[in-house]
């Protein structure tokens, strides 16, 4: 393999995700202070205008189909 980025990717990744979850549980940001985090580009969106997803990408990068979409990006024979 050209790089080893994928090796054990979930082991460092999950603690970071878990930390973000914990921080979320501690956060208490009143609505009147959420002007910046509510702007377009700061919110997750399925909109083609407001989001930044490339819908055809999982056809080329099969491991990208993690959230949303069908599992159809896998190879034909394997399925």
């Amino acid at each position: 393999m050209k790089t080893a980025l994928h090796r054990g990717v979930l082991s460092p990744f999950l603690p970071v995700a878990f930390l973000m979850l914990l921080l979320g549980g501690c956060a208490n940001v009143p609505v009147y202070e959420q002007g910046l985090v509510s702007k377009v580009g700061m919110t997750r969106s399925d909109s083609m205008v407001q989001g930044d997803r490339v819908n055809l990408l999982p056809q080329i990068e099969p491991g990208s189909a993690v959230s949303g979409g069908a599992v159809a990006a896998g190879c034909t024979v394997c399925r």
Partner: peptide, 16 residues
């Protein structure tokens, strides 16, 4: 889960 962490930080985590 999606969370506003601070007035300048928003996070999103998904497991599937």
């Amino acid at each position: 889960t999606e969370n506003v962490l601070t007035p300048r930080l928003r996070s999103y985590v998904s497991l599937r």
